[in-house]
Design a protein around this nucleic acid. Structure first.
Lengths: 123, 123
DNA sequence: CTGTATCCATGCCGATACTG
DNA sequence: CAGTATCGGCATGGATACAG
């Protein structure tokens, strides 16, 4: 019975969404796309990210070859993160989705409000 | 000084990713884009999704106006789900990302392997 | 400054049981 | 067939403390 006509979880897009679907990855990528950035600078600009999660996120992105980590020893030590070409291309691939989001955001909010109103009415 | 130059969480794309970043939404959308489908048919084709999560996922998508839920009372009762035009457009907006994923999947795997090899070597 | 290690609260989700 | 309700385990992630 080797005919699994079921939808596969390891279709490529699920892979990406596992990377990029978390709370911080996209924000980090978007920020680094503007300019390379140091750890604490990112921390300040991202707003709400914990030290732990920023470190974890950057590790994952580095691991996947989406960002580079460059250490400049000195006083104090500095670590600069930057997007790789691959990271830039991911950011580009994200653009249509961002565009869709911006265009439908309002309509979705309205749908949601309408849906909840209907729910309330039913109750 | 009301100048919060921090990155915002409610930038539209984070909104979408909160919807679409979960494990099942994209799979459901992809499946419904092929053809409308009934609940248990989806359940069978999606493979691994629990009854609960499929129900929750469909509710959210319906809530956001991405899918419709049509009930055909009878013996037995039938419920058919289908994508709305908005849902179709989301699926389209996802395409570039899926494409990127397919193209970089292999390279990412290699990066990851290399990264872990480096880690192991360092230890 | 740039992290890692630990602890712990929260919330997600599968399993199960039950309803129309 | 198409769900909802409830429970419990497990992973996620914030807070804190510590290190290079």
């Amino acid at each position: 019975m080797p005919a699994p006509r079921t939808v596969n979880h390891d279709c490529p897009i699920r892979d990406v969404l596992d990377r990029v679907g978390d709370a911080w990855s996209v924000l980090v990528i978007a920020e680094l796309d503007k300019a390379p950035c140091r750890f604490n600078a990112l921390r300040r600009v991202i707003d709400g990210v914990s030290q732990r999660m920023l470190a974890v996120t950057l590790r994952q992105l580095e691991r996947d070859g989406l960002v580079t980590r460059r250490v400049t020893d000195g006083r104090p030590p500095q670590v600069t993160y930057a997007l790789t070409p691959r990271g830039v291309s991911l950011h580009a691939a994200l653009a249509p989705l961002a565009d869709w989001a911006a265009r439908h955001q309002q309509a979705i909010r309205e749908s949601r409000a309408a849906f909840e109103a209907a729910q309330a009415a039913a109750a």
